[in-house]
Simulated assay, not measured.
Amino acid sequence: MKTYPLSLWTLVIGAFAIGMTEFVIMGLLPNVASDLHVSTAAAGQLITGYALSVAIGGPLIVIATYKMARKSVLMLLMGIFSVGNLFAALSVNYGLLMLSRVVTALAHGSFFGLGAIMAASLVPKNKQASAMALMFSGLTVANIVGVPFGTLIGQRLGWRASFLIISIIGLIAVAGLFLLVPKQGNKQKTSLFTELAILKSGRLWITLLISLFSFGSVFAFFTYITPVLREVTHFSDQAVDITLVVFGIGVTVGNLIGGKLADWKMNQSLVGLLIILLLFFIVLFFVQPFALPMILAVFIFGVLAFSQGPILQYRSMLLSKDAPMLSSTLNQSAMNVGNATGAFVGGISVNFLPIKFLSLTAPLLSLIGLVLLFIQLYGINKVKKSSSLASASTKA
């Protein structure tokens, strides 16, 4: 960690703040619903609205800011983020709070998409994926530390206090970006036409579908992990809380491991992770009734699931070198759509089957992602062989 520049840690702080604002609302839903006189279900739409805004807003922000230097865009995004959270803290009704969540979410996808490129530019080539993983670790650490802290503050001082603190953290990130991120190498090297032209690439869309489905299984199971722990493992509320912290630690470890794997052998590592994850879900089905094995399994689930993230992000950047900003941001959108798809598929499973079978239905999405990955890698290898044969024929 000591080899990474201070400028990279400002991106980590920004990611931490975004992670807090995305997830802290889950622990504050009853407080928000009571204070704003709406149902808990209506308050839950604040999460859905945020996720949809991330998926849609990220690419639009990239298009709107393509002429700006990357450093300036990142500062602007964190500025929007801080203002959005300040408005959330000041919201006096449900409509204003929803609007503030939409505004805040606009910064999410594009910050991680552009931030990943910035993180990679701050380190040598052999550490690029690890640097991106370190930036994303801010998001995972937010789940372990930031969300419980924000929830505690919100329950003690009112939910508005949580958003006010997040706004302040966002401003700290803005100051760090201004003071520490170097100016050199920040200007965009591609035109808007070049960025948009990548949308015609079949390879890009397959890459995005791989990200969507590979990560979809994670949220198909994780969305309902609390009822699984209560109804199948028969955990108390306290045991559930402890297990979720263990999961968060696994997520952080997995994120960092994923960066190392992407720097080592990107495609082979992703294939291996998806196969191991599929096998893991089968083992999980038999393990989930037992307390101690289940806690270990949840940790391993966090490691395996989130080792994919840096690899999927790095792949999107490398496979679309002519349009790194848009492809990197679209990958964030794809993963957020994957989250929503996973939650939807998990919901269908829970509605029609006993909840213990979720560990067998959830991996179907990752299986689709693995098949698409094999198809893409086969196509890439076929093109390489054709190019090699053509080159050999020319020389002959």
Score class of each variant (00 low, 15 high):
6 L>I: 11
8 L>Y: 05
10 T>A: 14
10 T>D: 01
14 G>P: 03
18 I>L: 15
18 I>C: 00
21 T>V: 13
22 E>V: 09
28 L>C: 10
29 L>F: 08
29 L>M: 12
31 N>T: 04
31 N>H: 13
41 A>E: 14
41 A>D: 11
42 A>S: 14
46 L>H: 00
48 T>Q: 07
65 T>W: 09
67 K>Y: 07
71 K>D: 02
74 L>I: 13
79 G>M: 07
80 I>V: 13
82 S>K: 06
83 V>Q: 07
88 A>W: 01
93 N>F: 00
103 V>T: 08
108 H>V: 09
126 N>K: 10
128 Q>C: 04
139 L>K: 00
139 L>P: 00
143 N>Q: 14
147 V>S: 03
149 F>W: 06
152 L>T: 15
158 G>N: 06
165 I>A: 14
167 S>T: 04
171 L>W: 06
182 P>Q: 10
191 S>K: 03
195 E>A: 06
203 R>K: 15
214 S>K: 12
232 V>F: 06
236 S>Y: 04
237 D>S: 14
250 G>N: 06
250 G>L: 04
265 K>Y: 01
266 M>Q: 14
275 I>V: 15
276 I>F: 13
281 F>R: 05
282 I>K: 12
283 V>D: 13
284 L>N: 07
286 F>N: 12
287 V>C: 10
295 I>E: 09
308 Q>H: 09
310 P>D: 08
313 Q>Y: 02
319 L>T: 11
320 S>N: 15
328 S>T: 03
344 F>P: 01
345 V>F: 12
349 S>D: 03
350 V>K: 09
360 L>Y: 03
372 L>E: 12
375 I>E: 13
380 I>P: 01
381 N>K: 15
